[in-house]
Design a protein around this nucleic acid. Structure first.
Lengths: 347, 347
DNA sequence: CTGAAAGCGCTTACAG
DNA sequence: CTGAAAGCGCTTACAG
């Protein structure tokens, strides 16, 4: 494989000159630049990543810390990985996947990536309200960007869909259609239990919406086990005051829910209205659901930008002194309700 | 951040001794080893990845080349990324995502990763029958493992589900239930057009199954556009001899297909039987489909193993002289038909 | 405008 | 069983 020396020899210049041409950090005469570029092209030269990072302490790599997933692979993960990789590429970065190793070993893969300088910064997925990875990375002075809105807004740069407002908006839309008894189906219990930010903030939204609008919003957790999920739904629909509308923050469960309700003779939106919030599977059976979609591309772009900016700030003094009351740089994405065909006036 | 010198000083040994303890490539006295391990633990030492790779030409990183996707992100991709990352971790490797840059720039991201020594080998996703990336990597002497069964079986190590046999098995199952007129719904046209191995081999399977079993197997391509897809289905179901069974190699389309057929008064499996082949969305509306599933974990593990073995072979003579008629090492996974509730006797 | 030289942090023959 | 030393391929002050 060609090295910088080979390029220098071919272009008739010093290796340092080749380096300067490539980095653009020094004025170079047009002739020299042309000769170097020709040699680079000719030899198919790409700088050795290891040598470059050893010398410059920059790797041009972002680590993507996958969720500390209780229940294996999450379908939404793929889109984020892809979106991150695309966004990172536009900033000149490659993305390194870091899988959490074992249950009792939270963040060790990430720590290896940080301490071993495999990457310049980390983007954390599946962030929890008090995520232990944040403190771990901070103690290493390793830049991070969070996909999730943590409890401590000054801990690190973060971005997220405004889940609380998303649920509030959903309830409002149902209320405006005349509904007064709603069921909010939250994320699965594991997510709530581990304090995933989207879970906790979604539930907060349901509580605030109930308080503000004066309608009844029953909170029920979803389940990956269909039998258990349908049992919970049945308990509500069998009650004296069954809900007339659903706000569901677990879109993959929707096809099954619709089938189950249909088997009970309950049709959407004739008998019950539906708003869904989150990441959607490719095909919901052609159903045009009224919904708020998780803006994966937008979040990926924001997280990448926050990470790149954090890299530039390494070594800066104190916490974020940007006059935002100590909050870290962040992007809170407002919800956008897409009106589909699953909300009808209350009976 | 702690370096090997810091560890050596803390343990009272030479840096080289620390290196030998960590690599295990030399006999070390128990006392020395203990002292070094304590110092490593104490300081939270992890070797600098750049320095290590510069010296040893091993990065402990596998590049994962994402599909040259005509239609953006593919849902199946996420599972493979996750599976690869887990499998790689078990071998001590991290995974670097390499997104294809532009349409006219096929493999340039991959080339940068290879020439710049960002990784020790590459796993290629979305492999095409004659994939240009294979030749590109071979000319660089860069090890690869293919997720897909290419035309030239000697080109590089590969692994895949036996798609041809999968479709043959599906047709056989339908034939045994008495069906004589089937519709095989192939992958979307873009995949066929670009020569994705699963597309091409699936269609070959349909052709072979028809020839072998003497039943009529009409081949129709799926479409990501539901309107177009339903138009194609309608054309078949409106004909004089409509199919009594479907073999579908595009599972995400199934909920929509079922809805569309139901709207025409066609019920599965009462009026038409269904076998599906490929990667399945999380929830098909609770439907228990007779199917052959893409074994994502198994393929991820196989691809990782093939890549790691290929790294060990770098610099070896000639092509693969393992007495397999010039075929490269490979794993062809036989299909496993899971009997669900969507196949009924032919009317 | 360009070059010679130091050194980043490792690994691995070489030596004892 | 252990250490001293060379050198991987870059980048970046230092010098002219």
């Amino acid at each position: 494989m060609a090295t910088i020396k080979d390029v220098a020899r071919a272009a008739g210049v010093a290796p340092s000159t080749v380096s300067y041409v490539l980095s653009g950090s020094r004025k170079i005469s047009a002739d020299t630049r042309t000769a170097v570029q020709a040699a680079v092209e000719e030899l198919g030269y790409h700088p050795n990543a290891g040598a470059r990072s050893l010398r410059s302490t920059r790797t041009d790599v972002l680590a993507l810390a996958l969720p500390l997933s209780g229940h294996g692979y999450l379908p939404v993960g793929g889109r984020f990985m892809y979106g991150l990789s695309e966004a990172a590429g536009r900033h000149g970065y490659l993305v390194l996947l870091v899988t959490p190793p074992g249950e009792d070993d939270r963040g060790a893969g990430l720590e290896r990536a940080a301490r071993g300088r495999f990457a310049d910064a980390a983007v954390l997925m599946g962030v929890e309200m008090e995520d232990p990875r944040v403190a771990a990375m901070r103690s290493l002075d390793f830049p991070v960007a969070l996909m999730g809105h943590p409890d401590d807004e000054s801990a690190a740069p973060w971005c997220d869909l405004d889940w609380e407002e998303s649920v509030v908006s959903s309830v409002r839309a149902l209320r405006e259609a005349g509904h007064r008894r709603m069921l909010y189906l939250a994320t699965v219990e594991e997510d709530v239990g581990s304090g995933r930010t989207y879970s906790v903030r979604g539930i907060r939204g349901a509580e605030r919406a109930a308080a503000e609008s004066g309608v009844a919003v029953d909170v029920c957790h979803s389940s990956d086990d269909p039998v258990e999920l349908y049992r919970r739904l049945d308990a509500r629909f069998d009650s004296d005051a069954p809900p007339t509308a659903l706000a569901v923050q677990h879109p993959p469960a929707i096809p099954g829910i619709l089938r189950h309700l249909a088997a009970r003779g309950i049709e959407v939106p004739r008998d019950v209205s539906l708003v869904a919030i989150g990441n959607f599977p490719e095909d919901l059976g052609g159903l045009d659901v009224t919904r708020i979609e998780l803006p994966v591309e937008q979040m990926s772009a924001a997280a990448t930008r926050l990470a790149v900016e954090a890299i530039a700030r390494v070594g800066d003094p104190g916490p974020f002194d940007d006059g935002d009351g100590g909050r870290a740089p962040h992007t809170l994405i407002p919800p956008r309700l897409i009106r589909g065909a699953t909300v009808a006036p209350a009976p």
